[in-house]
Structure formats: C-alpha cells, structure tokens
Amino acid sequence: MSARCIRTPGTHSSTISSVTNLTTETQVAPTRPQQTGAEVFAPVLPVDLRVTRLAKSFAGTLIFKNVSFGLSRGEAVAIVGANGTGKSTLLRCLMGLIPADAGAIDVLGTDVRGAKSSDLRAMRAQMGLVSQKHNLVPRLSVLSNVVQGLLGQSPGIRHWSQSFAPAASRAEAMAALTKVGLAHLASRRADRLSGGQSQRVAIARALVGQPKILIADEPTASLDPAAGEDVMDLFFDLARQEGVTVIFISHNIDHALRYGDRVLGLADGGMPLDARAKNLSAQDLRGLYD
C-alpha cells in the first residue's frame, strides 16, 4: 500500500491513511498525520469510504460505538476481533443492509444513513460482497449465479438467468469465471460444486460488475486451510489487478497481516486498533482475542 502513497509537500490529509503511517504500537488511536518538516505521507487517491463515530446496538446491547475510519482507493483493510465484537455488523452497516444507530457513513459519495433506496442500490452496484458462506443460489447454474451479479447495474428479467441474459452480460460473466479458473464449470449447478469452487464462483459474482469496493466477510471460514489459501490468493490477486478497494474480515491473523495493508481491530465496543499491517506482529493481534 505504501507504493500508492507519495510525498506531497504541505499536504495535510484528514483521511485515515495518514493514521496508518504512525503505527509502531499495538493499540493505535486515529490521529492526525505525522508531520516531518514540510512533508507528510498522504494518499492522492480518492477516499472510497469514510465512517465517522458509528454506533450500533441490538436490543439494547451495545455492539460498538465511536468507530471511525476511512479507506482510500485500492487499499486493502483487514478487520479483526473476537466473536461478537460486531465485525459483520459493521460491514452490513457499511452497505446499508442494516441501519446504524448513530454516526455517519459515506461510501463512494453516498450518505448511507440518509440515502433513498434507489441511491443505496446505485451505491451497492459499485460494490461486491463475498460472504463466509458462498451464498450461491443452489438450483441455478454457475453462469446464472454470476450473471445475477449484474442485477445492480441492469435490473430486470434479462439478468434473472443466463438463459435470458444479453450476449454482452454472458460474455462478462464467462470472463469473470475465466479469471477464477472455473469457466469449464459454467453449466454446472451451483449445489454440485465443492466449497472452494463455490467460493470462487462467489468471487466471480462479486467481481463481474467491476466493483470499486469489495467486501469479504470471512471468505475462508468454511474452507479447509489449503482451499482457504487458494481463495485468498485469488481474491487479492484479482482485487489488486482491478485496483479495487478491499475490506475483509478474518479470524486468521496470518491472513490479516499478509493480505491487509491496514488492520482494524474491534474490541470492547470500539475500535482500539487501526494500524499498518507491516508494523504489526501476530502477537499484537492476539491481544484482541484475550
């Protein structure tokens, strides 16, 4: 990620990327950029996502509050934390799938909390989601599942199934399947795939619409370690090729440090960790699970 940051004299960025330059300790609170003479490290790429003082409770139980961070274009951010700290809830709030209680969420210029349904759909059409469980539609073919990834951009019956889809959409879906190495299984029913294959199809579905932001909620949780490594390598290879911003949840500390440019840690109803991955050790992250 550091390759994407250039020296910009006099720049005083308020984006969270500036925070990531600081980290040497495990627990790092967001701060202003570290000034070194007249120069600071700051991204010139646009900010895709900004969260400010976000709070969420379920039935009176606080999940998190005062969560603030931002993501620059092309950045990969890992979210870590023990079960119940609100990682998945946070991601769902970002996509407007569930409402937050307080704070502000800006995704690709859309105020998620105040947006109309149509604005939310337009925003989501620029995002992709890969879930813990692949969430493919089991009775449909692999190609139909991938074609449905275009529903946000082209709603309606033409994208309900590959049978009705325009030639261009079918070609895009096949191209996405080729990227994940499963073009030869395009006609197979989704419920006839292995776990690793299913997750690859889910990645193809998330990528077919050429999203600006990819969200992955423990994409390897239901896979064996070898398949999990394959899926993570593929996911990040493709994301980096396409220059996509990635935010992913992982309980695998090694994955968080290896694939994330930054690591955000949720614990005790807040986000006590926001640090560059290269400045963290596995031991630092284990503290979040104590």
Partner: peptide, 9 residues
C-alpha cells in the same frame, strides 16, 4: 443478502 449487496431490486 448477496444479491441485495449487488444493488439488485
């Protein structure tokens, strides 16, 4: 949820 997340109606 996965399809809703693509922006589908």
């Amino acid at each position: 949820e996965s399809l809703t997340a693509t922006g589908a109606r």
